[in-house]
């Protein structure tokens, strides 16, 4: 029961972070560049509970976010990025080569790779990959920051319980 409550809390927190992300002007003129704040919760749940729980939180927050603030075209686009990033993170965690921060970095990078691939399919143009190096750097940096934050939050949570 406690787990269900915590996961509900995580989805709610992820939705708030999606909203905060919309308010922050983080834009450098590169299409598809995003902070990816909600991924903080996905990384945390992945480490606190496991991949099934993290996947549930991930899908729920994206679908709810699309209904609350976004639009339906954006839904498939975000889902693609999220799935790509999620499976890489779950895999990286499983092989135990990386710590939480490293897993988050890999997730950030592959979120953008996934979105780029879907975008190329949507517009039927491979030239979009021109922007991939920019997006990969952004994904690595935000992944690093979010991974560090996730680690600190989990440390604090464990100390308090």
């Amino acid at each position: 029961m406690k787990k269900t409550a915590y996961m509900g809390l995580a989805v709610a927190a992820a939705l708030i972070l999606s909203y905060i992300e919309m308010l922050i002007p983080f834009y450098f003129g590169i299409p598809g560049m995003k902070l990816g704040l909600p991924n903080l919760l996905v990384v945390m749940i992945l480490y606190l509970y496991g991949w099934k729980e993290a996947l549930a939180v991930n899908v729920l927050r994206i679908v709810l976010n699309a209904f609350l603030f976004g639009n339906m075209y954006g839904l498939f686009y975000s889902l693609a990025g999220a799935f790509c990033s999620f499976f890489i993170m779950a895999f990286c965690k499983k092989i135990k080569v990386l710590s939480m921060t490293g897993v988050s970095i890999a997730g950030g990078v592959f979120h953008n790779v996934g979105q780029c691939i879907v975008a190329a399919f949507v517009v039927n143009t491979v030239q979009i990959f021109y922007y991939l190096p920019f997006l990969v750097v952004a994904g690595a940096v935000t992944g690093l920051l979010l991974g560090t934050a996730a680690k600190e939050v989990i440390k604090k949570m464990k100390r308090e319980t």
Binding site: V97, L98, S99, T101, G102, I105, A106, V109, Y130, P133, F134, V136, V137, A140, L144, G147, T148
Partner: peptide, 24 residues
Amino acid sequence: MKKNDWLLFGSVIVIACIILSGYR
């Protein structure tokens, strides 16, 4: 952050920078 994390981060940044300087 562990050594492998830095390796991953570093190699991603380096590869991207090489491609970007190629653009330049």
